[in-house]
Design a binder for these strands. Structure first.
Length: 523
RNA sequence: GGCGCCGUAGCCAAGUGGCUAAGGCAGCGGAUUGCAAAUCCGCCAUCAUCGGUUCGAAUCCGAUCGGCGCCUCCA
């Protein structure tokens, strides 16, 4: 078993060899919580959640950190616009973010440090960089001196002289346009922390260097984030941390692709920003309108939380995992709908499994550890097929966490199991061979193992007939089904079909099985 | 201008040097069904174009066309 990952730093796939096996430290750049999350913010968490599941399964001890940036210029602007304290805005949006993560089944994060709770480490790091003459102070601002870092630009293959650098009022103070702020001097009405350079706040990149060092050490294994963070954010993190410590910051740099709308540009990208205009001149109403437009296209009128409630967290997770994490994903209602349809195949199988075996798929205990090549010579044909699916699945996951390819093996496996039920006529529970049922259970257990690795099928989907509110609906359905059964018995197919067709109009699908009729809502 | 990515069936999407190019959605044919639904079986691509390397390329190299990202805040 060898796991290979694509490393942005070397621009090639490499064998994963932890710095300190079996431990693996992962740092993922989380959100700046100046606004509610959109679906694009979920790509990184979902894939890294999956990566951690896979690494733990493969025998590693993984520590995964996702930071929350809760102090920043955009937060300060937002605070002014809304007339609320920055902290309150940060707290609101952090809560929204966490709730979205939970809905998508992202539950593997070990630490979520906040920038505002890491000031001591940040200041200490800046101080060291000044002492080392990698940074300099000008009137309460501190800048990193890129000319003192011969390796600057190595992540993105850039040279200092080609860079424009950040503009704004601070540009005049910088020795080189490419120098970037480590510490920003506070204006009178801005949130500020005491520092050796007066009151101020951290620059954008420094908090990640400080927090990753505290929680994962000076050199850790995997640093992740969206492709849009490669430059300047990660380039600058590398510069700060490696100049400070004199050793590599992270061994592998993994970047997820960005989500794109059908129409134009990535979510929150240039097109969105241009629409909003410069924040000095735009009115609050315009901002709200622009935000509403953006959300209506990217996440439904009520934002991501509403979209999750409407579509389902698992459906969105599945949608994201169907593509390789480094690809650009074009997001649209149609694409999402296709995913929902595809995912329903598994839910139908789980119901069938319950009918056949009397056991819930969700009660199956999933394998916690990876065990390879345990196929016994005497095992039956079904289990051999199941093992082939599983081996194919693991092979794809080993290759840079190819979830898109791995999903196909999930479909292959569910088809194999459905076929087995058909061929062995296990739907007739009365004469089912116990040995066949045992084989089926074993196959389902493997499906559960694979699903769990992807963070899928952890809890039963919302059932139309499970909620108390739908008790009446359930009773009415029983009545209609009984009426239709009686019509069918009398060969009154016109009546029977009318009941079925009109229920269909209401989005309810009937399935006649041996001896009974089931119903479900259309996905 | 600099750095980088992508172009596989109607649509989405794996595969990056060698078995019949995964899987999903849609469609068509069949088994099953009173008819459907569900399930299963079958059909449906020579991989943007051109040229080159190679015994052999979707997969490597070059050119062309088309799409995109970063170089300023962004997951």
């Amino acid at each position: 078993m060898t796991i290979r990952v694509y490393n942005t730093l070397t621009r090639q796939k490499e064998t994963l060899q932890p710095v300190d096996p079996p431990n693996i430290g992962i740092y993922l750049c989380g959100p700046t919580v100046y606004d509610r999350a959109h679906i694009g913010h979920m790509v990184g968490p979902v894939i890294f959640d999956t990566i951690k599941r896979y690494l733990v399964y493969s025998g590693y001890k993984v520590t995964w950190v996702v930071n929350i940036t809760d102090v920043d210029d955009k937060l300060i602007n937002k605070s002014r616009q809304r007339g609320l304290p920055m902290e309150q805005i940060a707290n609101e949006n952090t809560a929204d973010y966490l709730s979205n993560l939970a809905q998508l089944g992202v539950d593997q994060i070990d630490h979520m440090p906040k920038a505002t709770e890491s000031m001591d480490e940040i200041i200490a790091l800046v101080k060291t960089l000044i002492d080392q003459e990698h940074a300099y102070e000008v009137d309460g601002d501190v800048f990193f001196d890129v000319s003192r870092d011969p390796e600057y630009g190595k992540l993105t293959n850039r040279t200092v002289d080609t860079l424009q650098g950040e503009g704004g009022g601070a540009a005049a103070k910088k020795r080189s346009p490419a120098d970037f702020a480590l510490w920003k001097h506070a204006k009178p009405d801005e949130p500020a922390w005491n520092s050796p350079w007066g009151k101020g706040r951290p620059g954008w990149h420094i908090e990640c260097s400080a927090m990753s060092r505290r929680l994962l050490g000076e050199t850790f294994d995997i640093h992740g984030g969206g492709l849009d963070l490669v430059f300047p954010h990660h380039e600058n993190e590398i510069a700060q941390s490696e100049c400070c410590h004199g050793k590599p910051m992270a061994k592998y740099w993994l970047h997820n692709g960005l989500l794109k709308r059908e129409s134009a540009g990535k979510l929150g990208g240039r097109a969105d920003r241009d629409k909003q205009g410069s924040e000095q001149t735009v009115t609050l109403e315009q901002i709200q309108q622009a935000t509403a437009e953006k959300e209506s296209r990217s996440a439904g009128a009520g934002g991501l939380a509403d979209m999750i409630a409407r579509i389902g967290g698992e459906q969105i997770r599945f949608f994201l995992l169907r593509t390789h994490y480094r690809s650009t994903v074009v997001f649209s209602d149609e694409a999402l709908a296709e995913s929902v349809t595809a995912l329903a195949t598994f839910y139908r199988f789980f119901e069938r499994f319950l009918r056949v075996t009397g056991k819930s798929f969700y009660d199956i205990q999933s394998a916690q550890e990876r065990v390879d090549g345990e196929l016994q010579p005497g095992e039956d044909l079904l289990l051999q097929q199941v093992q082939r699916c599983r081996a194919a699945f693991l092979e794809k996951m080993d290759d840079d966490f190819n979830t898109g390819g791995a999903v196909s093996d999930l479909f292959d496996l569910v088809r194999t199991l459905n076929k087995f039920i058909d061929q062995q006529t296990l739907d007739d529970a009365s004469d089912a061979d116990p040995a066949n049922l045992a084989s089926l259970r074993q196959g389902a257990k493997t499906l559960r193992e694979m699903g769990t690795l992807l963070g899928l099928f952890q809890t039963p989907p919302q059932q139309a007939d499970s909620a108390d509110d739908d008790q009446l609906a359930s009773q009415l359905m029983d009545l209609l089904i009984a009426l239709r059964a009686s019509a069918r018995k009398n060969k009154d197919f016109a009546m029977a079909d009318r009941i079925r067709d009109e229920l269909n109009q209401l989005g309810i699908v009937l399935e006649d099985r041996k001896g009974e009729t089931g119903w479900r809502l259309q996905p």
